[in-house]
Design a protein around this nucleic acid. Sequence first.
DNA 1: GCAAAGATCGGCT
DNA 2: GCCGATCTTTGCA
Length: 192
Amino acid sequence: MPRSFYAREPVQVAHDLIGAYLVRYVEGAELVGRIVETEAYRGHHDPASHAYRGLTARNRPMFDEPGHTYVYFIYGMHWMFNIAAHPVGTPGAVLIRALEPLKGLDRMRRNRSVEDTGELTNGPAKLTQAFAIDGALNDVDLCTSETLTLRRGSLDPEEMVISGPRIRVPGGETAQEKRWRFWIRDNPFVSE
DNA sequence: GCAAAGATCGGCT
DNA sequence: GCCGATCTTTGCA
């Protein structure tokens, strides 16, 4: 994906990331998954966003060059994988919420300690565990990285991208009215 | 300094 | 459906 792909409104990028391939190289293994669910997070007018109150040490990637990763730790045990996406000058990122696992499933099963294919990458913290994504991969440039990249994907004719409110975001009505979550209708790997 | 909440998951009832 | 795990970040005193 070229840099220009990420340098647009987060909501647009979140929509367009559906169907793209996430490719990860770790310890000699190649892991591939297709993105089937995303959420957009913006800045000043988005109370649910880490960037809502301005720049902090943690959220810096949301303000810096689009196309870099934003990986953060939450609930004392989970890593969340985001991609910085925004027009220059305004913060924003896209949370990757679910993938369809395509290659390297045995490695993913080992990383997750589960056998069921349907449980490997059907949630934001599950997919980071399956793909061995943690804080060491924060602020990595997806345009140049040797170990984590995105490739343009495609959708089958019957696959339909639909939108709805984001999952469990704080911020009340204002945030819930926004349809900033995107997913492939009826895809079994979508988180909810 | 400290307290509270968190873009979740898995196990249990 | 509910609850506990487990620890970082942040905001405020």
